[in-house]
Nucleic acid binder design. Sequence first.
DNA 1: TCAGTTACGTATCGATCGGTACGTAAATAG
DNA 2: CTATTTACGTACCGATCGATACGTAACTGA
Lengths: 214, 214
Amino acid sequence: MAPGGRPRAFEPEAALDAAVETFWRHGYDAAGVAELTGAMGISRPALYRAFGDKAQLFSAALERYIARNMEYVEAALAKPTAREVAESFLVGNAEAVTTPGRPPGCLSVQAMVTDEADAFSLLAKNRLAIQERLSARFRRAIRDGDLPYHEDAEELSRFMITLTTGFAIRAADGEPRQALIALARRALAVFPEPESAIPTQTPSHPNSKGMTHD
Amino acid sequence: MAPGGRPRAFEPEAALDAAVETFWRHGYDAAGVAELTGAMGISRPALYRAFGDKAQLFSAALERYIARNMEYVEAALAKPTAREVAESFLVGNAEAVTTPGRPPGCLSVQAMVTDEADAFSLLAKNRLAIQERLSARFRRAIRDGDLPYHEDAEELSRFMITLTTGFAIRAADGEPRQALIALARRALAVFPEPESAIPTQTPSHPNSKGMTHD
DNA sequence: TCAGTTACGTATCGATCGGTACGTAAATAG
DNA sequence: CTATTTACGTACCGATCGATACGTAACTGA
């Protein structure tokens, strides 16, 4: 009734990894099906049988990419202070987009320039999800007194995403890892210093504990 | 001996403007010759007669784009202090990549994702030229005592370019102008404070439009 | 053994890609 | 007028695009 049929002659996950690498290196449009099948080591119809079409293959590749190359986001969000979250996120991204043995840059950014609306919206959704998580984390930091109450959590998270987007492009452009890490560290200047002067432009702050003076 | 021949039936500069817009909106690869000729209002052979081939057309379009949409770079470099250079550069870029009536983002960044080595190297050369001019300006600022002697001019210029690259991508992603300008102002925190004044916060009611740049 | 099911790959589809051959139209020079 | 020069656009080139038709191979259950 339900015979198995002929078994697969390749590992779908290994093939998907090759697809990730190809999309990563060339973006969505520039990664042709011929190049994909070549990298994946399978025939063209095998690709369509296993993954549907190019768009679905990209969707699966993006999902795998996120799971395998963006753990640094989780690690960063788990840091105890907002500043450490930011540093971990920025440095982790700088490292992720310059990992030796992997294509420089970020699949999400490389593939962004495409006319395929479906693929584009996938990427936008992913970016927005990360930004929202960062923003929520910063809002919590504001509630906890970890960030000044007048701080703009959404703007901070936008800053993070914008900078890491720039990292991805610059990495693809050949910028070395150390240069990007240095930029990440420098960018932390946009955060209020943890124990030095906070610009006092708001007089009525009820909280007196831990107030700093210079 | 040297008759004029049949005159052109179109304005090459107007056609080039349309090519700029098309490349700007879609990037190099995704801008097909059919779409280009459609936007330029000329036939396919007319394009090749007037501009050589697609790569040369892009080169001409990039040159025109730079001349017409990157005056903010010159304006920024002419500012008296390093901090004003940075602010003018960042804000000018944020405005340039979100100019109403023009495609969001930056032609140089949109076209970056391409397998055409020639087009890519053109863009890299342009980026590098801007970064070098910024770096030279900051080195001068260090010599003049406008920046601390231990400051890293090259790293500062890298920071600027990386951030504006991120601006371009985010603008193409739909980020509104005011959000990018806010990020530009915030990014100035990486500069040493000029000891006296904290830069004025964004006014509560931003001036509607009619900014100078183009 | 044989029917049912699934994966295999060759060979091919129509559409689109960047780029041109070629006959014609419009200007100038004599 | 004719000759020369240059731009015009239809119609087409080979290559490549994403996607499939189809005959064959390999497995399971009866």
